[in-house]
Amino acid sequence: MLRYIVRRLLQLVPTLFGLSILLFAWLHSLPGGPEAAMLDVRATDAKRAEVRAALGLDEPLIVQYGRFMKRLVRFDLGDSFTTGTPVMEEFGRRFPATVELTVVAMIIAICAGIPLGYLAARRHGRIFDGLTVTGSLLGICIPIFFLGFILKAIFAVKLGWFPSLGRQDVDVNATRVTEFYVLDGILTQEWDASLNALWHLILPAIALASIPFAIIVRMTRASVLEVLGEDYVRTAEAKGLRENTVRGRHVLRNAMLPVVTSIGLLTGGLLSGAVLTETVFVFGGIGSFLATAISNRDYPVLMGFIMIIAVIYVLINLAVDLSYSVLDPRVRVR
């Protein structure tokens, strides 16, 4: 087990190395440069060259890449071209927002998706099943920003139950510890601040949860249907095990394997794909920051953020693979 984890982590090194080269080549091949975003369109060529030199962009690409790698081995990702702050610091400030949003969205999707999918499978072919399937398909087909708008228009603007934007009310005077606003409130025992942040999370999280919810419902339903037809379920029922034991130990546990895989992949996707939701609810996570970074050609931010996301993506997949051996003793990782 430990050897397996170590090997997987070692495989990260060449993958990240390849990714860094590809990313570097891709970003620097985009037309225009950071100076175009920093200077007025009327700036002279001399001024542009001056700015490029100040950012170290006048050197050959290979030298620039070497400098990037030299810093990287010391876990230094350089400073953002646009804000001037270290990339790590920017990331530390924005990533918690995205993580909070993703986690709450996934909790909603899982808590609603798995029971619904399970019930639909138990009532296979009846009205409840049909409604669940159609409803989950609708969840995939609704453009996420439209759902965000509708939720905002109804629950924030019309009814006023939830705030319509931001992570916390501006008049909440909260102490920052980890930049995870909900967690900060708990750590400092400022319960109001924590609750306020949670309140801000609900609407965007519901919007973001729509697609993973739909996928989890269908995965669970299909998987449970398949397991229900297995011989061991019939055997378990035939030998008179209580229904709850059969459901929990035999059906659900075996049906969870593919569901867990998709949950892992979905979480990875949400971390980088929350841009639309973050834009609609002005949430200030990494998605919207990345989108502006690319139009500003903020190379350090882009390189840094994407590489960190890639590492997290790989780690999530590793966790998924490890969870197999917990859920299914037949699967032994080697």
Binding site: T15, L23, G268, S272, G287, I306, I309, A310, V314
Partner: peptide
């Protein structure tokens, strides 16, 4: 896999 890790919007 690397292509999958790069956010599609970017």
């Amino acid at each position: 896999d690397m292509a999958l890790a790069v956010p599609s919007l970017l």
